[in-house]
């Protein structure tokens, strides 16, 4: 009988908990955390690419060591989720946005006013199609989308079903490749790479073996310092040419990468918010830190500390004026 008593007690406790849920449901719930208030704790979102990690790690080191912020959290999350986090106040800042969420920008910045712009990161993002220089030199027709089909057979692989293999972007990255290939009637098939790292591994292997490849690629990217790629000429980007995306025939825009802040944080975040607004560096600087992390396998913190130690004059300008 002892057992049954214990079971009854736990069931009663369980029912009690459920009852509390039910009771608390009588009032209206709070709809968001409503900003951290003050600048004791700052949460920065970090998407999955290394360049963005470099921004965040450097910002974290300076915030913690120079501006006495108690705790800087770097939350790994992809772009759309990061926007939701900024809206709800769960995160305070996005440091590198590639303009991939136009609907959310409209909704949160213009309509709800929960997110505000934080200025330029200083780095200009560029996406395109690239081939290795050793191949482009031997086959110049590869460098223009109009003549690309002539060399498609060189790119055949076990994955490409008789067509040329095109190394595609990771799932969360902005891309119109599928429609570009379709609308230009290219004899290529996209190979899903799943993650930036997998794509980089693949490129490194092929580059080392001097094999031909064509890939979705972008700048800033630390690997560009190690390998020499040539861009394939795509039709020029004009405003609105990729809407609707199914009709896209043009190439990619040059995107000055943007920072965004939670509105409450921007207002009440004090020095921390001001510092993040001032944060601005160059492509080369970002690539340097990225390379330490991705290629030399330093931890994000080590790499950031190293850069901070070596580049005092750059980051001192970002500190809020006293």
């Amino acid at each position: 009988m002892k057992h049954s008593k214990r079971i009854r007690t736990s069931l009663v406790a369980g029912a009690g908990v459920l009852g509390m849920f039910a009771l608390s449901a009588c009032g209206a719930a709070e709809t968001g955390k409503g900003g951290g208030g003050g600048s004791d704790e700052v949460t920065i979102t970090v998407p999955s690419w290394v360049g963005a990690q470099a921004n965040a790690e450097v910002a974290k080191v300076i915030l913690e060591e120079e501006l006495d912020v108690k705790k800087v959290t770097l939350q790994t999350m992809d772009e759309p989720i990061a926007w939701d986090a900024l809206n709800s106040g769960k995160a305070d800042a996005i440091l590198e946005d590639w303009d991939g969420q136009p609907e959310k920008q409209k909704l949160y910045i213009d309509q709800k006013k929960t997110v505000v712009k934080g200025g330029d990161l200083g780095v200009t993002g560029h996406i395109g199609w690239f081939v290795p220089k050793y191949y482009a030199d031997a086959h110049p027709e590869v460098t223009d989308i109009k003549t690309l089909n002539k060399v498609a057979k060189d790119f055949k692989s076990s994955e490409s079903e008789g067509k040329g293999e095109f190394l595609g972007a990771a799932p969360s990255y902005t891309t119109y490749d599928e429609w570009l290939i379709k609308n230009h009637k290219l004899d290529f098939k996209i190979k899903e790479t799943g993650a930036e790292a997998a794509q980089i591994k693949e490129i490194q292997k092929k580059y080392a073996a001097k094999e031909p490849f064509i890939t979705y690629w972008w700048e800033p990217q630390w690997l560009n310092a190690d390998i020499e790629l040539v861009e394939v000429k795509l039709p020029e980007f004009t405003e609105g040419c990729n809407e609707p995306k199914e009709k896209t025939e043009c190439g990619y825009a040059n995107t000055p990468l943007q920072k965004y802040l939670n509105a409450d944080f921007a207002k009440d975040g004090g020095d921390a918010a001001q510092f993040l607004k001032n944060f601005k560096w160059t492509t080369e600087q970002q690539n340097e830190v990225s390379k330490w992390i991705a290629k030399d396998k330093m931890s994000g913190e080590e790499a950031a500390k190293k850069w901070v130690a070596e580049n005092k004059e750059t980051w001192e300008a970002w500190l809020p004026k006293k």
């Binding site: 992809d78 772009e79 759309p80 989720i81 799932p171 969360s172 899903e192 799943g194 993650a195």
Partner: peptide, 21 residues
């Protein structure tokens, strides 16, 4: 999970759906 490294065709779609909203 295999979708994260480019395997499993539907898997890639699931990951894409999640990461692109």
């Amino acid at each position: 999970i295999a979708g994260m490294i480019g395997g499993g065709a539907l898997g890639v779609d699931v990951i894409k759906g999640l990461t692109k909203g």
